[in-house]
Amino acid sequence: MDRIRDQINATARRVPTWAVYILCLLPAPYFFYLAVTGNLGPDPVKPLEHKYGELALQLLIAGLCITPLRQHLGINLIRFRRALGLMAFAYVTFHLLVWAVLDVQTLGRVVEDIIKRPYITIGMAGFALLLPLALTSNNYAVRKLGVKWRKLHKLTYLAVFLGGVHYIWLVKGIQLEPLIYMAVILGLLALRLRGRKPSRIAA
């Protein structure tokens, strides 16, 4: 186990962070291309919208894994957390743009949907929470905000949770996939609650 951990850590140190940005960004044009060329089925707007939304959730969840991986398994991927967070924000934005521009299509109805449809309101709230986090994801803001930065970025927890609720709420009937996402999100958030006690004692 220790050898595997050391190997992962050694490999991770050699991966430049820009590679993570590129890797995370590639699916965006790829799925857009599939949609334009008719390879996402005859109604490509919805699959593209959903794909971007799913990728956003997956990246947010990946970001939530960084701390527990280090605390519980000693795997240090903290260098990539900013990239994962910013890329998650990018996909939430793509998701929102496809929904507003290609799906709903008119500004009046976009506003109406945000106000009148609770699952969309919740999704927008998640996006709104991520916005200040994306804007402060640079070295200058980290230095400037200091302790406040850590507190501010705990908003991620709420944003991911809202994303999970948004997904459960939008499907028809009872579907397994959004429930699995929610279980994973709640599990990762629960690890934080447990992880806090010892650090308090230490402090």
Partner: peptide, 15 residues
């Protein structure tokens, strides 16, 4: 309750 029914996407129309 979760979406408007005032308009529709016609399947096959493309992105």
């Amino acid at each position: 309750p979760r979406w408007s029914q005032a308009s529709e996407r016609m399947v096959g129309g493309g992105l």
